Amino acid sequence: IMNKFKQIHQQPNKEAAIKVLHAFYDKWNRVYNYVIRNLKDIEPDLLVFYSYPKQIRSSIYSTNMIESFNNVIKRKAKAKAKAEFPTEQSLDTFIGIQ
């Protein structure tokens, strides 16, 4: 099912993606009714990355960069003593610098 879902993001434009998405709905609705209902509710948000240039689309729908950045922040924040962040503002400053 994930391989079929990934095909939506691999389409050249939004119209093609909508066709693939609706075919996905038709194929999997009986088996995964709850999931398909939820996807239909968020469909406009699901395809919003097609509003951006093709060169940056993969970075928008992929969370790999975000997850990587969060891991770096967690690792560096744990390495510092908690006393170095006496306020929330000091932690925000540290994260901003990173």
Results as ranks from 00 to 15, higher is better:
residue 26 D to N: 10
residue 51 S to H: 08
residue 42 I to T: 02
residue 33 N to G: 11
residue 47 L to I: 06
residue 46 L to W: 06
residue 42 I to S: 04
residue 64 N to A: 05
residue 31 V to D: 06
residue 26 D to A: 14
residue 44 P to G: 08
residue 31 V to I: 07
residue 32 Y to A: 14
residue 62 S to I: 01
residue 38 N to Q: 15
residue 52 Y to I: 00
residue 27 K to H: 10
residue 41 D to C: 06
residue 53 P to F: 08
residue 31 V to Y: 07
residue 45 D to N: 14
residue 51 S to T: 13
residue 60 I to R: 04
residue 59 S to G: 08
residue 27 K to R: 10
residue 67 E to G: 04
residue 32 Y to K: 07
residue 52 Y to S: 10
residue 49 F to P: 00
residue 54 K to T: 10
residue 26 D to G: 09
residue 24 F to Y: 10
residue 68 S to M: 01
residue 61 Y to H: 14
residue 29 N to A: 15
residue 36 I to Y: 09
residue 35 V to M: 13
residue 47 L to V: 05
residue 61 Y to K: 06
residue 33 N to D: 10
residue 48 V to Q: 10
residue 42 I to Q: 01
residue 30 R to K: 15
residue 38 N to R: 15
residue 46 L to K: 08
residue 33 N to I: 07
residue 41 D to Y: 11
residue 27 K to E: 15
residue 52 Y to V: 05
residue 27 K to W: 08
residue 51 S to W: 00
residue 61 Y to F: 15
residue 65 M to T: 06
residue 31 V to C: 09
residue 43 E to V: 02
residue 37 R to F: 11
residue 52 Y to C: 09
residue 36 I to Q: 07
residue 41 D to S: 11
residue 59 S to I: 09
residue 54 K to F: 09
residue 33 N to A: 14
residue 39 L to Y: 12
residue 35 V to Y: 07
residue 40 K to D: 03
residue 22 H to C: 08
residue 53 P to V: 05
residue 37 R to P: 00
residue 32 Y to H: 14
residue 49 F to S: 01
residue 26 D to I: 02
residue 30 R to T: 11
residue 37 R to K: 15
residue 43 E to Q: 12
residue 64 N to H: 07
residue 29 N to R: 13
residue 38 N to W: 01
residue 65 M to W: 00
residue 22 H to T: 09
residue 40 K to V: 06
residue 30 R to G: 12
residue 47 L to D: 12
residue 28 W to I: 01
residue 37 R to C: 10
residue 68 S to W: 00
residue 55 Q to A: 14
residue 56 I to V: 15
residue 56 I to W: 07
